[in-house]
């Protein structure tokens, strides 16, 4: 009897869902269904989350996760194969582009914070990091206080830019010269070519930059965490149907443990175009995955 009821309920649920699915798409999913295209924004130098690989295509941890979501979206709207249009974004362009509807999902290394939630929405947290400083070993910089009298590059529109600027102001650090750059690649090049003494972004990205450097041994990540930065894939605001598809996919990966395979692929093994980062997931991140492994 109970089995029958469950079966009937399940059948009803499936029927209902299918019915709803056929007619009731709205917002992003409707746009995707109508155009047959999903527009994916991606970063170009957030190693190993989203960066341009040796064959000039974006690859990385966030890209892998995004592609899982793209497949789920295709299934949801009932299309066999969605056209995936890739649009490169920078820290400065990503939020306006999600807000103006030009990209449907952003795969990169974006911090989820409450200010940004006024403009955009986020899927579940996929990584946890914070601001640190990358310096040449010879520079003598060991902490944020050592920036006095030195030059540092910061990427426009990043949370790190504000964290470091605030730290400089709050701690009264004197004579810091700030070079404003467009993205991490430009910032690292400024460091590599001795234009600045340090570059600052999330500590995991700093390891990513080192892994691709010509002389990795010359650089070190120093200092305490200046900010707390949980990463999430960015989505359009006020669109819970789209967010549900994304979160269902991510929760599935967290539940099955597949997330750790994807994690290890990008953080523990050599990556295309660079060396292995060798940063284990660690307790915080594994707890994060466990806590967000919502049941079906």
């Amino acid at each position: 009897m109970i089995k029958k009821i469950i079966a009937a309920a399940a059948a009803l649920a499936v029927f209902g869902a299918a019915n709803a699915g056929a007619a009731d798409f709205y917002g992003t999913l409707k746009k995707i269904k109508d155009s047959g295209t999903i527009v994916v924004g991606h970063r170009e130098s957030s190693v190993p989350f989203a960066y341009i690989g040796p064959d000039n295509k974006p690859i990385g941890y966030s890209i892998d996760l995004c592609m899982k979501i793209v497949d789920a979206v295709a299934k949801e709207v009932g299309v066999d194969k969605l056209n995936v249009k890739l649009v490169p974004v920078t820290p400065q362009t990503r939020i306006p582009l999600i807000a103006n509807g030009n990209i449907n999902i952003e795969c990169g290394s974006t911090t989820n914070n409450l200010t940004r939630q006024k403009q955009v929405d986020y899927a579940l947290t996929t990584f946890i990091t914070g601001t640190k400083i990358l310096a040449k070993k010879t520079s003598g910089i060991k902490e944020v206080e050592d920036l006095a009298g030195k030059a540092i590059a910061l990427a426009q529109g990043t949370t790190n830019e504000r964290a470091i600027k605030n730290a400089i102001k709050d701690l009264g650090i004197k004579d810091v010269k700030i070079l404003s750059v467009k993205d991490h690649a430009e910032g690292f090049l400024a460091l590599e070519t001795d234009r600045v003494d340090a570059y600052s972004t999330d500590h995991i990205l700093l390891f990513g930059l080192i892994s691709k450097a010509k002389k990795p041994a010359d650089y070190e990540v120093v200092g305490r965490f200046v900010s707390f930065d949980p990463y999430a894939l960015m989505l359009p605001r006020d669109d819970s149907a789209m967010r549900l598809v994304a979160n269902r996919t991510l929760a599935g990966l967290f539940r099955s443990g597949e997330i750790l395979d994807i994690y290890n692929k990008w953080f523990m093994k050599p990556i295309p175009g660079g060396k292995a980062l060798n940063v284990p997931a660690g307790d915080t991140l594994e707890t994060n995955f466990a806590v967000q492994a919502f049941p079906k």
């Binding site: 400065q92 939020i95 306006p96 807000a99 006024k118 403009q119 426009q156 529109g157």
Partner: peptide, 8 residues
């Protein structure tokens, strides 16, 4: 652009 970034 900076104002847009800070204030949206």
């Amino acid at each position: 652009r900076q104002i847009e970034n800070y204030t949206f």
